[in-house]
Design a protein around this nucleic acid. Structure first.
Length: 427
RNA sequence: GGAGCGGUGGCCGAGUUCGGUCGAAGGCGCUCCCCUGCUAAGGGAGUAGGGCCCUAAAAAGGUCCUCGUGGGUUCAAAUCCCACCCGCUCCGCCA
């Protein structure tokens, strides 16, 4: 969430930044009103508490020494106590209202983030390895057809057991899922600590990354135990250091995790959902860093660089997209997407989102560090990106590497992860 | 799921019997200083986080909150009561 003191000090800057997202900046004035009121009430309350505490200490003195009767003092204090509890209740109410607004407010886009109100204004920074004329007819087959023909993707049976937008992989299709996960983990193990976190988390954990309360309809919830299925490993990884104070020497702290990810995708039924384009459950390797503010830029570059290198080495066509302010994820200040070209469906598919969150998530998760040589603490910055999101990469690979005989010959880099044989043929 | 015990600062740990002089002994760690040919050892000082006020801002200062979380009792709660969360031990169940 945003720093309330910054909103107080620079309301116009904050408003302008929110407006770049197309958000209504009117909330800011409302929040400032609530905040002013809250501080006034809080001060009155603190003053009463002060008086009560002084009286109580005097009562204690009298009782111990037995010098005089304390009844008069306790009576006075009791009256103050009644007034105090009224004010305290009011102050709590106001504080709650402020917090509720802050939790629903998006992060401010970075200055460098391009202007624009929707995805059409996103800026393509680079296109790599892409030749629109360079695809043969046999590559122009959608992955769901290839998957069905080779017996490696079973959309129907996925739907039978779990509903639409749940899929199951078979044979070398399933092996390819594992291969991609393993490859992504291996390539980042030099700098990122591997974590295998829980996939079911508490409400607080979802709030920390910004997935709640605003996006409650996008998440699966297990009511009986009040647990949420994570939409990305970003959620547990960002809470790894929740409520902790890190030492500056520990930063940047780099983590990666392979998890299943669960997304309800409410409202997207029927739209761009065929095959693997959009599924409710998928595997992803996420990489994440906690940094000092000064380290953030380098960490962002590192995450993009690693994600990009993996896609490049898989031989896919891809482009890097700088997401404009109006299309930015709610918690992010700056996001670069990687989109791969899938020739069979003839479109660019988003396979990675590399984001810098500033201290927006750290403030929610209360992750701080001690700057060495200084007093006090500061919020860390958080950054993350998908090292590899399986389904769409799987789709692009199968389409790109489809041969004229209908088989799929995957790149050699995957061979070690597929028992030495990256060629997929019909049974 | 049942029974018992526990949750205190960066870490360990006393305090809870019998509420007040406790935001908290002692230790470890860390920072600074002294001593020291170097190292080790030793001596001294400091060292929780956060809100608000003050300030151009900071420092200093003032004040409030925080001893797992939330509520209650009381003039006054780390300490008493209730609920919940988490941990450990035992029992039950189980991949």
């Amino acid at each position: 969430m945003l720093d309330l003191r910054r909103i107080r000090a620079e309301p116009d800057i904050v408003k302008a930044a929110l407006e770049r997202r197309g958000h209504d900046a009117g909330v800011i004035d409302h929040v400032l009103d609530l905040d002013r009121h809250h501080r006034a009430v809080g001060e009155e309350r603190d003053q009463l508490r002060r008086e009560i505490s002084v009286l109580s200490k005097e009562v204690g003195q009298l009782r111990r020494t037995g010098a005089a009767d304390a009844d008069e003092l306790t009576a006075r204090s009791r009256v103050l106590g009644q007034a105090e509890s009224t004010l305290a209740a009011r102050a709590d109410e106001l504080a709650g209202a402020v917090r509720e607004h802050l939790l629903r407010m998006a992060n401010l886009p970075a200055l460098a983030c391009p202007d624009g109100m929707d995805e059409h204004a996103n800026v393509v920074l680079r296109v790599e390895n892409f030749d629109p004329q360079g695809y043969a007819a046999h590559q122009r087959v959608p992955h769901w057809e290839i998957g069905a023909a080779l017996g490696i993707l079973d959309v129907e049976r996925g739907a039978k057991m779990s509903g639409s937008m749940f899929v199951l992989y078979r044979r070398k299709g399933a092996a390819l899922v594992r291969a991609l996960v393993q490859l992504a983990l291996d390539r980042n193990a030099d700098a990122y600590e591997e974590i295998r976190p829980p996939t079911l988390v508490r409400t607080d954990t979802m709030i920390s990354t910004g997935h709640l309360p605003k996006f409650i309809d996008d998440a699966y919830h297990l009511e009986r135990d009040d647990l949420w299925a994570i939409p990305t490993a970003e959620v547990p990884l960002t809470s790894l250091a929740r409520d902790e104070i890190l030492d500056e020497s520990e930063l940047p702290m780099r983590l990666m995790a392979h998890t299943s990810c669960f997304r309800r995708e409410a409202g997207s039924a029927g739209r761009d959902t065929r095959g693997l384009l959009r599924v409710h459950e998928f595997d992803k390797v996420e990489i994440l860093a906690y940094t000092t503010p000064a380290q953030a830029t380098a960490a962002h570059d590192d995450i993009l660089g690693r994600s990009e290198a993996l896609i490049r080495d898989l031989g896919l066509a891809y482009r890097i997209v700088d997401i404009c302010a109006g299309d930015l994820g709610s918690s992010s200040a700056r996001t670069w997407d990687i989109e791969v070209f899938a020739p069979g469906v003839d479109r660019w598919l988003e396979v990675s989102s590399c984001s810098w969150f500033g201290d927006y998530q750290a403030r929610r998760a209360n992750v701080r560090y001690r700057p060495s040589g200084q007093k006090g603490t500061q919020f860390v910055h958080t950054l993350n990106g998908s090292a590899l999101a399986v389904p769409r990469v799987w789709a692009a690979l199968v389409e790109t590497y489809r041969q004229s005989d209908g088989s799929v010959a995957l790149p050699a880099i995957l061979a070690p992860y597929m028992r030495g044989d990256p060629v997929i043929t019909a049974r």
